[in-house]
Structure formats: C-alpha cells, structure tokens
C-alpha cells in the first residue's frame, strides 16, 4: 500500500488532501485530550496530585520520540537500499520533529519528577535511567541533523545520514541496557499502559478514566505528527522543484 505513495506525484496528490485532515483531526483530538487531562479528570494524590496531569503530554511524547527515531532509521534504510528519493525527504522531515518530541518528553519528565520524586530537578535527571536514555536519544537526533547540515551536497547528506541513523538504531538497545545497568533502581513507575506477563499480573493498570483521554491524545498527536511530516516533505519537494525551475530559466537566459 505504501509503495503506491513512493511515486512523488501520487504523494503530492495524497498529501494535499491528507495534511489538512490529519493536522486538523490531530489538533482536535489532542485538544480534547488536554482539556480532559487538565480540567476534567480527578487529581490523584498518590501520583503527586495535579502535576500528574503532565502525563497527557509526557506519555504520548515518550512513545512518539522513540517511534520517530525508528521511523527515521526505517526511512533511511528504505533510501539506502532502494534509493527512493521520497524516503530521504521523509527522513529529513522526521529529524527535527523527533528532536522536538524528545526534548518535550525530557522536559515534561523532569518537571513531573521534581515534586513527585522529591528531589531537585537536576538530580531527577541523574536519578532516573529512563530520562537519561531520552537525553541520549536527543543527542542522537542532534548529531544526525548536524551531520546532514555539514555535508555540502544533498546526495552526500542523505547517504551519510542514512548510515548514521541505521548505526544509531542498532545501538539504541545497548545504550538503553547500559543506562539501566548504571542506575539499577529507577524511580520511574513501571509501564502501566503496555504490560506483559508478570508485570501485567502484579501492577494495577491505569484506570479507564485516564486511559481513554490518554490514548485519544496519543492518537491525536500521532495524526498531527504524520501531517506535520508530510507538510515538511511537501515543502522540501517544492523547494527542489523551485531549484529545478530556477536552473532551467538560468540555462535558457
């Protein structure tokens, strides 16, 4: 199904319709989720009271920043093997959005952690291995963007970026493992939405009152991000077309 969109003309046609729908719907769903999260759902004293409402931004951004890095590496892989130009355009568009969501996840995590875990915020970063992993992920995104920006031709930037993104992705599990080993006892709560095996039996899952706005918020953010990626891709394609037109005019003149 996706290979149909590998054709830039079809992609332009599709995205022209899809962008307003995904961004609009995504914004509406995110806004509803935030409204529910910030005003409607009851505060939970065990989770730090009102500060736990940060969950409605923190959790979707945590899922999205990891998903976006996988997406970046996936797009890089497709470009590296099949040389679909659109895959590189996608990788280039994903990087800044992914970096933004990683920073958002890190910032909300630190803000949420400060009063809840009862430590100064800079200690929170050092006390929690999950936040530390997110910080490393942010540096992977920044390194990727810096490398692309430093290389002079688009082709070189695409190839070097693809190599770096793929090498980065296979390193992510090892980095995660090492950071977990460094701080064996994380004070971050265990996963309460996606649970498997023993964990599912042991810890009580998240209550539907929170889960429904959270999942709708995540879905809304996902739609918004995919719309944003397509928007950046369109801008990039228009930029390339403008370059081509300019070059043709200059050669004719």
């Amino acid at each position: 199904m996706w290979s149909i969109l590998a054709n830039p003309h079809r992609f332009m046609g599709f995205s022209k319709i899809a962008i307003p729908i995904t961004i609009g719907l995504g914004l509406i769903l995110s806004a509803w989720s935030l409204y529910q999260g910030l005003w409607v759902v009851p505060p939970v004293p065990a989770q730090g009271g009102d500060i736990a409402r940060a969950m409605f931004i923190h959790v979707p951004s945590a899922w999205l920043c990891m998903g976006l890095y996988v997406g970046l590496a996936g797009a890089s892989f497709v470009w590296f093997i099949w040389r679909h130009e659109l895959a590189d355009v996608a990788a280039r568009a994903i990087a800044p959005i992914g970096a933004g969501y990683t920073a958002l996840c890190f910032a909300t995590g630190a803000i949420w952690g400060e009063p809840t875990w009862g430590k100064a915020w800079r200690n929170v970063i050092l006390y929690d291995s999950r936040l530390m992993s997110v910080l490393v992920l942010l540096f992977l995104f920044i390194g990727y963007m810096a490398l692309r920006a430093a290389l002079d031709t688009r082709q070189k930037a695409a190839r070097a970026g693809a190599i770096l993104a793929m090498v980065g992705l296979i390193n992510v599990p090892i980095i995660k493992f090492s950071v977990d080993l460094w701080k064996e006892s994380t004070i971050h709560q265990p996963s309460s939405v996606i649970r498997f095996g023993e964990a599912a039996a042991e810890n009580v899952g998240i209550h539907p009152v929170f889960l429904v706005p959270l999942m709708i918020g995540f879905f809304g953010q996902l739609l918004f991000v995919s719309g944003l990626i397509m928007l950046l891709m369109r801008a990039e394609i228009f930029g390339q077309q403008a370059d081509a037109i300019l070059a043709r005019r200059l050669s004719e003149a």
């Binding site: 490393v136 540096f139 992977l140 920044i142 390194g143 810096a146 490398l147 430093a150 290389l151 002079d152 070189k156 070097a160 190599i163 770096l164 090498v167 980065g168 390193n171 090892i174 980095i175 493992f177 090492s178 950071v179 080993l181 460094w182």
Partner: peptide
C-alpha cells in the same frame, strides 16, 4: 562520516558522544 567536512572536530565529537555511553558506563 565527516571525512569530507572541513573543520569537523566538533561535529565528530557530537556524533560520537552518544555511542560512547555504554562503554563509559
């Protein structure tokens, strides 16, 4: 990766540092 970039010292450091994390820990 940065072989073709002039004055790549800081860029190389920025790219390499996240990969140093496991060995450091």
């Amino acid at each position: 990766l940065a072989a073709g970039v002039a004055r790549a010292g800081l860029l190389i450091a920025l790219i390499a540092i996240p990969f140093f994390v496991p060995a450091i820990i």
